[in-house]
């Protein structure tokens, strides 16, 4: 039964990949977002406030395409070309929003107060690239022809 479930998930994923290829990054999110929103409705937790804002990098430039989620749920949105976002559902004080962008470390912010809120988010932590590769070859005292060639030229 469990095997079948996994298989279905896999199949669904492949279908999604085919169906939504051009906007793949966001397509499954929208579907999951609706499901999640429905779930929240049924639990009666929709009485919150609107959260919007802007996300910038450490130079202060707006970041487009930052994905934003309520932590622990699949409810999310992304920033537009100017780095702005408006969360699609109402949020409650204390809920955590996660902000992620490829190449930057994800950050978390808590939703404050009971009134509508405008967040200014800075994603500061970029990653210094270090470049080693997977190497497990055997040490040799000899200089290979290739290395010799490189040394000379």
């Amino acid at each position: 039964m469990r095997g079948f479930k996994l298989f279905s998930v896999g199949t669904a994923c492949v279908l999604l990949m085919i169906a939504y290829k051009p906007t793949f990054g966001q397509a499954p999110t929208v579907k999951e977002q609706i499901e999640s929103a429905k779930l929240r409705d049924s639990e009666g937790v929709t009485s919150g406030h609107t959260v919007s804002g802007i996300v910038r990098d450490k130079e202060g430039e707006p970041l487009a395409g930052v994905s934003i989620y309520v932590k622990g749920t699949t409810e999310g949105t992304t920033t537009d070309a100017e780095g702005h976002f408006k969360f699609p559902t109402k949020l409650k004080e204390g809920e955590i929003l996660t902000f992620s962008f490829m190449g930057l470390e994800s950050v978390e912010y808590a939703v404050m107060g009971a009134a509508d809120e405008y967040m200014e988010i800075s994603m500061l932590e970029d990653v210094t690239i270090i470049g080693d590769l997977a190497a497990d070859d055997v040490y040799t005292t000899k200089t290979g022809l290739r290395q010799l060639f490189r040394k000379i030229f």
Partner: peptide
């Protein structure tokens, strides 16, 4: 092994697929 070369466009989606079950 179920998600070969899955898109890295949204890591949250991939992470859920890998860990939710």
């Amino acid at each position: 092994e179920m998600y070969p070369r899955y898109s890295l466009g949204n890591l949250k989606v991939l992470s859920d697929k890998l860990t939710k079950p």
